[in-house]
């Protein structure tokens, strides 16, 4: 199942990047796809962590939400940086990830880091250490809005 989805994705990727449809290139792409899939299988990368294809439907609603969060946070960081007095208040804090799978926790930690103004500096089991640029960012994370959203994403909604 995952073998098929990975093969299809890789082959489409080849076509998209090459843009040529000569027989030789099509066959070369096919061979490369098969080789990569075989290597991935041998390395046992094809589990729910290495190739989380089942999360794709949920991602279509999660990513736009995350994008909007990034824009809001990025704007506030930019304002703080450009203000003459440099109004920053760096804060370290801990938050608990309520996700159940490693893929979910990684998604949460990466979402925190991707959002300007907050960086995950460490993960231990389900407790993340977060460095925030402004105190408000740390408080927002502690309230857990993003955590709940990622958990919803992990369950596939």
């Amino acid at each position: 199942m995952r073998v098929i989805s990975l093969s299809v994705v890789l082959y489409l990727f080849w076509l998209a990047l090459s843009g040529y449809f000569k027989p030789f290139l099509l066959i070369a792409g096919l061979l490369s796809t098969v080789a990569v899939v075989l290597v991935a299988r041998r390395m046992r990368l094809l589990d729910s962590e290495g190739h989380p294809a089942h999360l794709l439907p949920a991602a279509s609603t999660y990513w736009p939400w995350l994008l909007w969060e990034i824009i809001k946070a990025g704007w506030s960081v930019t304002k703080a940086v450009l203000r003459p007095t440099l109004a920053i208040s760096p804060t370290l804090t801990r938050v608990v990830a309520s996700q159940r799978t490693p893929a979910g926790i990684v998604t949460y930690a990466n979402s925190i880091t991707l959002t300007p103004g907050t960086i995950t500096t460490g993960v231990k089991d389900t407790v993340l250490t977060v460095h925030a640029f402004e105190r408000g960012g740390a408080i927002d994370l502690e309230e857990g809005g993003m955590d709940a959203r990622v958990t919803r994403f992990e369950r596939g909604a």
Partner: peptide, 19 residues
């Protein structure tokens, strides 16, 4: 890190106990 406030020692909530 230069810190304004260190909140790493804050008590974790109910979920935290099950961490």
């Amino acid at each position: 890190p230069e810190l304004d406030e260190d909140r790493r020692d804050r008590p974790l909530d109910a979920n935290g106990a099950a961490a």
